[in-house]
Design a protein around this nucleic acid. Structure first.
Lengths: 248, 248
DNA sequence: CCGCCGATTATTGTATACGAGAATATGGCA
DNA sequence: TGCCATATTCTCGTATACAATAATCGGCGG
């Protein structure tokens, strides 16, 4: 159904990563034709790929309209962070319960990568790695369902950051990750949970600049970002290449 | 993408409900042709519908093989309950924070329905209502993302019950629901959380009869249930009607 | 010069076609 | 009689076709 075709799978991964790394910004159009043409497959598969991304909340698709990279509302954004926090707590607790020394090393290796990316000002990779830290931790919980759910939420957080955050604030202060690792090592559930909560909270604060209940205030910010969105959606992952390529 | 076609939407709802109510048992085959024929649509739409159900974990689909109603492993089952508990806690906490008196009445009305269904020995409806209690509560949290995630998990729990539980144990002791309502009314977060936790725990215990790490022990039980599965998948929701209907 | 309306083009919705791979039945052989 | 090889049938994987609707552009009237 989903993993069958290598091309469809590649398209899925590519689009997913492009969205997460903010190479395709929220609102960017994703016409079935072009996606199919780009990945050398028919609209049938392009459509299935988009449907999958839609199910994960990364793509908006209203009937009869071209699919776009999702633009979560402020309210939705808050909801996502709330659920994410609940699952991160669970992930921390479960991971500590089955803690093994290798885990610490693995996570620290990851943090080193994060620092490297940050040092070389590679924002795209930075953003992705910041998210993946949380996924790796969730994986250590041993609970696949939890891992999957959290992965979905974390991706959507990248999207939220792209929409409402300031331009290039990479998601996490890396040293917060280090502190969490330290607490995990001590098997300090309460401490690790608290740190994680604060950490995600601070990401949320950075992401949701606006505090007003209405989204009007940041309409300006959003609109001014739009010019960038449109141009970026062309450069970006080279998806919309100039004009479209006809059916060849 | 998904809600476009009324037929596809109907098929989705029907299949979903049939699975949840255990009219279609785990392992039952779901050939694209038959589904399409039954709902008067082409395989294209049938396929999309199945993909959707697969994304929610209600359907298993390996490439080149006919899709079936999902058969979660014991391990997966435990994972699902674990995540569910985490989200139920969150739902309780959030709901209490924005509690309104109507909520109590609404939930009590629901419990009355549950009792009615139980009184008339309507197992199917009983099972469905038991799950919907939790969804309604999640809806009151005001967090759509949470509600959706929990709905998915609760559905999958019905599946687990069908696979591993004893034949007709309807999911919940209804009075546990009433106790939870009482705690909510008192805005007693700790108490309500504890009750919810115990409640889901008891559902889990009822669902996962086997405690052994290996699933060998209940292989017999599963196999003996299979005869029923096959015959039931024919009677059931009248999906596989005798032979298939050709392309008309 | 600006804004509304119709023609043109871009894109989606859905069915169908055809090839390929499983599943199942059939017949020969031990 | 029981088992394996092979033919047959059932399904899936994917592309393509065609109709229908939305977006876009150009001309007309104000």
């Amino acid at each position: 159904m989903s993993k069958s075709s290598p091309r469809a799978e590649i398209a899925y991964q590519a689009l997913r990563q492009a969205i997460i790394e903010q190479a395709l910004l929220p609102g960017a159009k994703l016409p079935e034709d072009q996606i199919g043409a780009h990945f050398g497959m028919s609209r049938t598969l392009a459509r299935a790929t988009l449907a999958r991304l839609q199910a994960e909340g990364l793509v908006d698709a209203r009937p009869k309209r071209t699919a776009t990279v999702a633009q979560p509302t402020l309210e939705e954004a808050r909801d996502i962070f709330e659920v994410r926090k609940a699952l991160e707590r669970e992930a921390v607790a479960l991971t500590i319960k089955r803690w093994r020394p290798e885990y610490g090393a693995a996570l620290e290796g990851h943090v080193r990568e994060e620092n490297a990316a940050k040092a070389r000002r590679d924002d795209r990779v930075s953003i992705r790695l910041a998210g993946e830290f949380h996924i790796k931790l969730a994986a250590m919980s041993g609970n696949k369902v939890l891992q999957r759910a959290l992965a979905e939420l974390v991706s959507r957080c990248s999207l939220i950051l792209a929409l409402y955050g300031r331009p290039h604030s990479s998601e996490c202060a890396v040293n917060e990750h280090s502190q969490i690792i330290a607490a995990l090592r001590k098997k300090d559930i309460a401490g690790a949970t608290r740190l994680m909560e604060e950490h995600v909270g601070s990401v949320e604060r950075r992401a949701l600049l606006a505090d007003a209940p209405s989204a009007d205030l940041d309409l300006d910010a959003v609109l001014s970002r739009y010019a960038r969105t449109i141009e970026a959606s062309n450069a970006a992952i080279s998806l919309p290449v100039g004009r479209r390529k006809r059916s060849s």
